[in-house]
Design a protein around this nucleic acid. Structure first.
Ligand code: FES
Ligand code: FES
Lengths: 146, 146
DNA sequence: TACAATGCTGAGTAGTTTAGTCGTGAATCG
DNA sequence: CGATTCACGACTAAACTACTCAGCATTGTA
């Protein structure tokens, strides 16, 4: 039932990019270090994200990666489906065969769960995750400053 | 993200047992044939279900498997967790470390999704699935009789 | 132009998981 | 006893995961 690490890692990377948006390209090595990801693995994830138009990359010195659009417009759902493929918990509720007859009498439950899940993931943007993180940092800072 | 077939198969088997409850032990081979499951695989699933107290088995001629309690008391969640282990979609939201600090800023989303999912699965019983199946059968029958 | 910094790509890989099969043994009924 | 049924563990092929690595392509700077 577990997602692979790809989705998690990819979202972490995009959060990092969003946080440094407007400061020019961010390098792979910086993302990897800050977010605790294996750099050579992150490489592949960024490639996929680029293919799907989430990021734009520039080579050469001073190069790196940037978001192609504001973080407010990037939903968690779109990122995860880019990196993980379909998030369907059962083959019979995958997007392809939604018209097909219910095979085993429990598929309707999974269909409901899947719809819920997608709705929740579609309602969260990378920008919100960045905001959450900033709030969390402020809370930590406040704790120490008291 | 996909569940393994174990959960699906196991639920199918329990639906079959529930449907024939009160008619004495049901044999593996019958379940396998009716529900289109590989019999020698079903074997392992029934073993697990027995270990966890969902079914009781008797050997010898006329032996087979029966539910230990009414289908109304068996939730989908309990069956799936028996056969699949934890259904957590991310390690960081697994039951073990629910107290642990959020690691990467998106775990709260997954925690919400996981809670939703468990709630939905806990709200459905094997008895309801049997009822659904019976209604479906009646609908088919009605269609043909017209 | 040389060269260093950076990203791009595909091949390879060790370990794990999935979805089973098979064989042997144990219990039970007649 | 012998047929029937479940019980259990060993085994396996195929797929997937989470990587690493080597080599190439592109770009900025001196
Ligand atoms: S076949 Fe899809 S839930 Fe059983
Ligand atoms: S570490 Fe759990 S969602 Fe990222």
């Amino acid at each position: 039932m577990l997602l692979s690490t790809k989705g998690d890692y990819g979202v972490r990377a995009l959060i990092d990019l969003a946080k440094h948006a407007g400061e020019g390209p961010v390098q792979r090595s910086d993302i990897a270090r800050r977010r605790q990801l294996p750099e050579s693995y992150l490489d592949h994830l960024l490639a996929q994200l680029r293919r799907d138009g989430f990021v734009r990359s520039t080579r050469g010195p001073g190069g790196g990666h940037e978001l192609t659009r504001p973080a407010e417009e990037i939903t968690l759902l779109s990122v995860l489906e880019c990196l993980e493929g379909s998030l369907a918990p059962m083959v019979c509720v995958a997007d392809a065969n939604r018209g097909g007859e219910s095979l085993c009498g429990q598929s309707w439950v999974w269909a409901e769960i899947y719809d819920d899940m997608r709705a929740r993931l579609a309602a969260v943007t990378i920008a919100e995750l960045v905001e959450h993180e900033r709030q969390h940092e402020r809370a930590i800072a406040a704790n120490y400053s008291i």
